[in-house]
């Protein structure tokens, strides 16, 4: 697989994503500068974490107008897998590729901590290697991760199983105490209606190999690779 990692001015998790996909998962990785207008030849696109454009105005508000975002929109519309992590999630929201918006954390603190999330939908291209209801420990690092959307949109997300990850306690219980930032309905990650675009606040690329003491994040990134490999295998078998 050839995974594209978009680099915005101020991205700072781009090399972590490159490292995990290339060195841990053995895939080809192409770094895509935000001025690029084509994503030809890529099997999936990652919008990494960081502080694109210094978080000026609002997180992701300026990055969404980077030239590459036109190509990302087209890539998503054509069914390509797009994963937005942290600032990448914020950019997907600002770009309208996912519904809702991020507010400042309820505590007003920048939160840099391990959190637990429950896999609410294991039948997505991003969670195929997870068990339904599985609890993952993944770090978050953000000041604006307080997910908000209007009640009608929220009901739609719930009804269509678009909420993929919820903040929970270590035993999997979704409680207000386990919600680090005030997110509506403990939302940590959502997908679009078509299912090929996912945004999440936790950083799976920061916990994807055993030497770091936690491999839970690897499940998410490996799900993408395994799913795409299986799809390509099926297409080859049918050809």
């Amino acid at each position: 697989m050839n995974i594209g990692v978009v680099v915005f001015p101020g991205s700072n998790c781009d090399h972590d994503c490159q490292y995990v996909f290339r060195d841990v998962l053995g895939q080809d990785v192409t770094m895509v500068w935000h001025k690029e207008t084509s994503l030809a030849g890529l099997d999936a696109v990652i919008l990494p974490g960081g502080f694109s454009y210094g978080d000026y105005l609002r997180t992701g508000a300026i990055a969404r107008f980077s030239p590459v975002m036109g190509a990302v929109k087209k890539f998503a519309a054509d069914g390509g897998l797009v994963l937005g992590i942290c600032n990448g999630f914020q950019i997907l929201l600002e770009a309208g590729l996912l519904p809702g918006a991020m507010l400042r954390n309820e505590s007003l603190h920048f939160i840099c901590n391990d959190v637990f999330v429950r896999v609410e939908n294991a039948a997505t291209p991003f969670t195929g290697a997870c068990k339904p209801g599985q609890v993952l420990k993944i770090p978050v690092a953000h000041a604006d991760g307080n997910y908000y959307t209007d009640p009608v949109t929220l009901a739609g997300l719930q009804a269509n199983a678009q909420i993929v990850f919820r903040y929970c306690a270590s035993d999997g219980k979704v409680t207000p105490e386990a919600n680090p930032n005030g997110s509506l309905d403990n939302i940590a990650g959502i997908r679009n209606a078509a299912g090929n675009v996912l945004g999440l606040m936790p950083h799976p690329e920061r916990c994807a190999e055993s030497v770091l003491g936690n491999e839970d994040g690897r499940l998410i990134l490996a799900s993408m690779v395994e799913g795409m490999n299986a799809k390509k295998g099926r297409a080859k078998a049918l050809a």
Partner: peptide
Amino acid sequence: KLLANTVI
């Protein structure tokens, strides 16, 4: 388009 996010 840019200055406000009308969702919030």
